[in-house]
Design a protein around this nucleic acid. Structure first.
Lengths: 259, 259
DNA sequence: TAGTGGTCTAGACCACACT
DNA sequence: GTGTGGTCTAGACCACTAA
């Protein structure tokens, strides 16, 4: 009984016991995992607070140790908790969870960095592009809305962004004003398009004359080239291909890798 | 007995049985997983080829089903195999494996790309570095083993890699020959250090004189700078800080973003 | 019907941390 | 010493797939 709040775990276990549904088709380990995850995300369990041990879950919920163990082990691989042999299972820092690879828009990315996002539209047109279509696994005749914008951070040019969005999935997008607006937010709110996953590549390059002019840097300066192929919620339908050119001196890409 | 090559699985099981070491301190499930993973990465098991079933592993290796199961289940979460109820366990497409965001060594990264990894050691020393220590959240007096290597892909220089490993956690590392050897594998197998997660940043830069000479490119050419802070399995104990400089014309970083 | 993976139980021994 | 997580065993029943 080493916890600072002796009754905290007991109260938690009681709640879990009430919510666990043995008649449900959902596996027991999954139900336990989800119940714990909800409490962590709602902040009812604070970072570094101890979760029930395998033994406590076993007794309180009437499940075997392997079932309790699986719930805790999956929470660990998903980054919600960390486990220490001989000590227990504890809620992980939210920072670590957030920095997991999430599909974010430029707007969200800048806000997370404490910068004011912006966008200046250079060009919007409906067009075809065989290479982009091939990259997305589509027919060469596929029509795209191409949106070319300068992305700003606190008013300063940070990136040149060229997005190719499938015209068939968002009719009329070319008429939208995308100045200082998130494209992803527009797709979500106006066209009800839920984004799922994206395949992204990053490489180093040197600024071309056009890029240098737009980004206000000398020709040949290092730039970070980022290409992203985004899919809808089903994980298979491509929706957009984006090529972005970031100033190398002002932008750093951050990822969190696991296992 | 539905396999197209009825004896393929039998031969595989025989090999596994010989390599499994019950006296090893490494867990059985881990050994089985690694042996299968090696065969997949070496291409001995082709995509969509069936792996031994849990039952077959159980009988051939003399382990319990849960142990065999855990090896296969972890291969699944790591993207190496897919499992279908009632059918079996099969080797996944390499493309899907690569795009998953995993904490991989240079060695694993190159193998996944179908290239032969290598390493030429430039310098190994035990030293202090206040800035690196601060970056890792350690006392300024902390001692590191600094390993500076040229990383090769198919024999060609691809990156300059400088790793700072905490000397206290791997005594004698400076005496190891890390030529053409994975540092992570050495940490895992010789020092029993399990890596957990890593925080990584990527940015674009221009090659310095030294980097250009080592990578055999002109000074000022674009390079991809990757810094990685790696933690042990507990997710909180820092173990190494690595700064890598990749040739911009030959290396592309791939990530898969979700949600 | 036989084989597969998915879930679950009820034990066991171990290394490790705390006190 | 007690409690924790890490590994492992030897069973069980189920849903699903394929012959």
């Amino acid at each position: 009984m080493a916890a600072s709040h002796p009754h905290a775990v007991d109260a938690l276990l009681e709640g879990l016991g009430r919510e666990l549904d043995r008649a449900s088709p959902l596996p027991l380990y999954y139900q336990i995992k989800e119940l714990l995850r909800e409490r962590i995300e709602r902040g009812e369990l604070r970072p570094h607070e101890r979760l029930p041990s395998e033994n406590e879950l076993e007794r309180a919920l009437g499940v075997s140790r392997m079932t309790a163990r699986r719930a805790l082990a999956e929470l660990e691989t998903e980054g919600y908790v960390y486990r220490e042999q001989g000590r227990g299972t504890f809620v992980a820092e939210p920072k670590l969870r957030q920095s997991l690879l999430r599909l974010t828009s430029f707007t969200e990315d800048m806000r997370a960095r404490g910068l004011r996002p912006g966008a200046r539209v250079l060009d919007v047109r409906v067009m075809r592009d065989e290479r982009v279509a091939a990259r997305m696994g589509l027919e060469p005749e596929e029509a795209f809305v191409r949106v070319r914008r300068v992305r700003l951070a606190d008013g300063q040019p940070l990136a040149l962004e060229t997005a190719y969005v499938r015209a068939a999935l968002c009719p009329g997008l070319e008429a939208e004003d995308l100045t200082d607006r998130s494209l992803y937010q527009t797709l979500r709110e106006r066209y009800k398009l839920q984004l799922g996953r994206a395949e992204q590549t990053l490489e180093a390059g040197a600024a071309t004359e056009f890029e240098a002019q737009v980004l206000r840097i000398p020709v040949g300066q290092p730039v970070l080239l980022i290409e992203r192929l985004t899919f809808l919620g089903d994980g298979r339908t491509p929706i957009e291909f984006v090529r972005s050119v970031y100033r190398g001196d002002r932008y750093k890409f951050v990822v969190e890798l696991r296992r």
